[in-house]
Design a protein around this nucleic acid. Structure first.
Length: 639
RNA sequence: GCUGCUGUAGCUCAGCCGGUAGAGCGCGUCCUUGGUAAGGACGAGGUCAUGGGUUCAAAUCCCAUCAGCAGCUCCA
C-alpha cells in the first residue's frame, strides 16, 4: 500500500504502484479531467508516474503556474511535430516556454512565413484531435548520445545536462520523438487553446557567430477564452505603443533622412520642456550646478578617457581641418576638462555638476526602436566630484533624488540592480572591489533590496541601475549611478586637501531619467498617451456649442492662458459631439463646453477626459482646480 | 549587424495570377448654428520607398539599395 498525503493534509490509501492519475480520479472526476501532471514530494512528474511508500502528492492542472508552463511546453512539442511533418527536413533544436507562451528553435533552410501559420495550426489541431498519449522513454547518457550521434543539436543538448538518465518523449505512432526532460501532459488533447504568433531569426546559443535558426513563437492557454483575452491584451499594449501614439498625438517623428534621430514636434517639445524644467528644479533642490560641454571634441581626449579602446565601435568620428575629432557618446570626459579649468579645494567638495548632455551613439540598425533606442539622445547627466569619505552620503543623496523623481512622474514600483566589473574595463581589481563595496554599502544603508548583475558594469566602474515598472507590469531601465575611480586618475583631476597635499577626487556619474527621449517614450506608454495635466501639451480646450459663443470662448481661453494654463479652443462649425470626440482623440485632460448658458453666467461646463460626467463651474473655480492639479502633478483629474 | 516580413494620398489601409490607382479619416470650400464620443454636399491631394531588370505594357514579377516592423545579439 502507498499512503498518499494531499496538499490539504488529508491522506489516501492506494495500491502500491498506483499512478498519480488514479489519485486524481479518486479525489474527483472534475480534477481527473483537468489534471495534466503531478507533483510528488515537490517534484513535477508525469501523471502516469507510479506511487510507492508515503509520498506527498499534488495534482497539477493548467490553473497552476507550473501546470500552465508544462502545458505550453507540451504544446511546443505538438507544434514541433506539426512543423516536422510539414517540412520533413526540419531539425529540432530547443523548445522552451517563455512568458505567455513558448517557442521552438528549428534549423530549416526554407523560411517559414506567417502565411504558413494556419497550416501549422491545422496540423497541430489534427494532432490534438487524435488525442495521442505522451510517452516517456529513458536511456542512459551513453545510449542517448549513441542514438543521436547524427544530430548535433540534440547531442549538444545532452552535453549540456549533467543527468545520467536521458529521457525522450513521443506522442503518436508516426515515430515523432523528442529529447526532453519533461514532464508532459498525458495526451495531445491537453495542450489547451493555442496560436502561432510569429517567426523570427535567433542565433544558436545566442551567439552571433553561430548559424541563424528560425524561432517559431506560439502561445497556449487553458481555454479559448483565456487565449482571446491574451490576444486582446496584446492589442491593448499595442495601443500604448509610443511610436504609434507619438505620431497620432503629433509629439515626435522620424525621417528616413536620419534613422535613430528623433524630430521633436511642438507638442512633444512641451512635454520635453516640462520634464526638463522639473529636472532642473530637482537639481537645484539637491545642490547641483548646471554646465554644458561640447558635442565634438578632439579624438585625443577619447584615447585618454579609455573610450577609444572600449567604446570606439559605438562612436562617430569626423575631421575638422585635417584633425581627428569624435562626437561624444558620453559627457564625462568633457566634464573632466571643465573640472580641470580651475584649481579645487576640499572645501568645494562634493562638487555636483549637472549637464543635459546630448550624446550620439552608433547603435546597430536592427536595435533602433522608436524613442527607446535611438542614436542621438539627451541624458540628464551629472558628475559628482567628492572625497572617498563622501561617497556613501553622496550616493544616498542621489538615491533620494531618484526616488523623489520617479514618484513625481507617477511610478510607484522600482527595481534596483547592481552591476559589477565587465570583461572590457579599465582600472585595477582592487579599485573595482572598493567601488563595488561602496555601492553595496549605500544600498544596504538605505535598506534597499537589489539584484546583482555580474559583469554588466560600465567600463570605468560598477553601477546601480534603476528600473521602473509601468502600470501594465513592464519594467524599464532608466536611472543609473556609476562609481568611478579611473577617470579622475586618467585626467589627473585633483583637489587640495586640508593638509595642503594634492589628492585625486572620486567621480560619481549619475542619470535619473537616463535618456529624456526614452523617458518620454516610457511616459507615453505608461499613460497610454493620456498624460497628466502637468505634462499634457494642451491642458484644456474650450468647445463652443455654436458660433454665438465664440467671443466668450476666446475670453475663457485668454483668462486661462494668462494664468499659465495651456488652453486651446475649437471654434469650428462642427457639432458639440464631434468636437468632444475629436478632443478625446487628442487625449486632452479637460474639455470646457460653452454655450449661451455658460456665457451668460460666466461659467464653463467641464467634461473630464475618460468620463461622461459633466460639471458646471465658474471660470475661476475651474482655474483654481486645474492650477492645483498641475502644481500637484496630479494624475487624477476629478474635482 | 543577422534572419524573416513590410513599404500605395498627411494618417490607417484596399488594389498585387501584369493593361499606368481606390476607400475611410484628415485637409479646403459651401450648406448647416446644432447642448455632451464624429451632420451633409462638393473638392484638392499619389514620380505606388529608391535604382536597375524582365515585358508591347510593371504599384503588381525579379534583383539590389534604403527605411520600418518582429525577433536574435547589443544597450540609456
Amino acid at each position: 500500500m502507498a499512503t498518499i498525503t494531499l496538499p490539504d493534509g488529508s491522506t489516501l490509501e492506494m495500491a502500491d504502484g498506483a499512478t498519480a492519475k488514479q489519485v486524481a480520479e479518486k479525489i474527483g472526476a472534475g480534477l481527473a479531467k483537468a489534471a495534466i501532471a503531478a507533483k510528488i514530494d515537490g517534484k513535477l512528474v508525469d501523471l502516469n508516474t507510479p506511487l510507492r511508500g508515503t509520498p506527498r502528492v499534488q495534482i497539477v492542472t493548467p490553473k497552476d503556474k507550473e501546470g500552465l508552463e508544462l502545458m505550453r511546453h507540451s504544446c511546443a512539442h505538438v507544434m514541433a511535430e506539426a512543423i516536422c511533418s510539414l517540412w520533413p527536413a526540419t531539425k529540432l533544436v530547443y523548445g522552451p516556454t517563455v512568458q505567455d507562451g513558448f517557442y521552438y528553435d528549428i534549423d530549416l533552410d526554407e523560411p517559414i512565413r506567417p502565411d504558413d501559420f494556419a497550416r501549422i495550426e491545422a496540423k497541430m489541431q489534427e494532432i490534438v484531435d487524435a488525442n495521442k498519449p505522451f510517452t516517456r522513454k529513458e536511456l542512459s547518457r551513453q545510449e542517448a548520445l549513441e542514438e543521436l550521434r547524427n544530430d548535433k543539436y540534440k547531442t549538444d543538448n545532452i552535453e549540456r545536462v549533467d543527468s545520467q538518465v536521458i529521457s525522450f518523449y513521443s506522442h503518436g505512432d508516426n515515430g515523432f520523438e523528442d529529447l526532453c526532460r519533461g514532464p508532459h501532459v498525458p495526451s495531445t488533447a491537453k495542450v489547451g487553446a493555442f496560436k502561432i504568433m510569429s517567426v523570427a531569426g535567433a542565433y544558436w546559443h545566442g551567439d552571433a557567430t553561430q548559424k541563424m535558426l528560425q524561432r517559431v513563437y506560439g502561445t497556449a492557454w487553458p481555454t479559448k477564452k483565456e487565449l482571446d483575452e491574451y490576444i486582446n491584451r496584446l492589442e491593448e499594449a499595442k495601443k500604448r505603443d509610443h511610436r504609434v501614439l507619438g505620431k497620432q498625438l503629433e509629439l515626435f517623428s522620424f525621417s528616413e533622412m536620419g534613422p535613430g534621430f528623433a524630430f521633436m514636434h511642438p507638442k512633444g517639445m512641451i512635454v520635453w520642456n516640462e520634464m526638463l524644467d522639473f529636472m532642473r528644479q530637482m537639481n537645484r533642490k539637491y545642490g547641483y550646478k548646471e554646465v554644458r560641454t561640447p558635442i565634438i571634441l578632439n579624438e585625443e581626449l577619447w584615447h585618454r578617457s579609455g573610450h577609444w579602446d572600449n567604446y570606439k565601435q559605438n562612436m562617430y568620428f569626423t575631421k575638422i581641418d585635417e584633425i581627428d575629432y569624435a562626437v561624444k557618446p558620453m559627457n564625462c570626459p568633457g566634464g573632466c576638462l571643465l573640472f580641470k579649468t580651475t584649481k579645487h579645494s576640499y572645501r568645494e567638495l562634493p562638487l555636483r555638476m549637472a549637464e543635459f548632455g546630448m550624446v550620439h551613439r552608433h547603435e546597430a540598425s536592427g536595435v533602433l526602436h522608436g524613442l527607446f533606442r535611438v542614436r542621438q539622445f539627451t541624458q540628464d547627466d551629472a558628475h559628482i566630484y567628492c572625497t572617498p569619505a563622501q561617497i556613501e552620503s553622496e550616493i544616498i543623496g542621489v538615491i533620494n533624488l531618484i526616488f523623489e523623481t520617479y514618484k513625481a512622474f507617477g511610478f510607484a514600483d522600482f527595481a534596483i540592480e547592481l552591476s559589477t566589473k565587465p570583461e572590457k574595463h579599465i582600472g585595477s581589481d582592487e579599485i573595482w572591489e572598493t567601488a563595488t563595496n561602496a555601492l553595496k554599502a549605500a544600498l544596504n544603508h538605505k535598506k534597499i533590496t537589489f539584484r546583482i548583475n555580474e559583469g554588466d558594469g560600465a567600463f570605468y566602474g560598477p553601477k546601480i541601475d534603476f528600473h521602473v515598472k509601468d502600470c501594465i507590469g513592464r519594467s524599464w531601465q532608466v536611472g543609473t549611478i556609476q562609481l568611478d575611480f579611473s577617470m579622475p586618475q586618467r585626467f589627473e583631476l585633483g583637489y587640495v586637501d586640508e593638509d595642503n597635499t594634492e589628492k585625486t577626487p572620486v567621480m560619481i556619474h549619475r542619470a535619473v531619467l537616463g535618456s529624456l527621449e526614452r523617458f518620454m517614450g516610457i511616459l507615453i506608454e505608461q499613460y497610454a498617451g493620456a498624460l497628466p495635466p502637468w505634462l499634457a501639451p494642451e491642458q484644456a480646450r474650450v468647445l463652443t456649442i455654436s458660433e454665438k459663443s465664440n467671443a466668450y470662448a476666446a475670453r475663457v481661453q485668454e483668462t486661462l492662458g494668462q494664468a499659465d494654463v495651456r488652453c486651446g479652443v475649437d471654434l469650428s462649425d462642427e457639432k458639440i459631439g464631434a468636437k468632444i470626440a475629436k478632443t478625446h482623440g487628442e487625449k486632452i485632460p479637460y474639455m470646457l463646453v460653452v454655450g449661451p448658458k455658460e456665457a451668460e453666467a460666466g461659467q464653463v461646463n467641464v467634461r473630464i477626459r475618460g468620463s461622461q460626467d459633466t460639471r458646471t463651474a465658474s471660470v475661476e473655480q475651474f482655474l483654481a482646480v486645474v492650477r492645483r492639479k498641475i502644481a500637484d502633478k496630479a494624475t487624477d483629474l476629478a474635482f
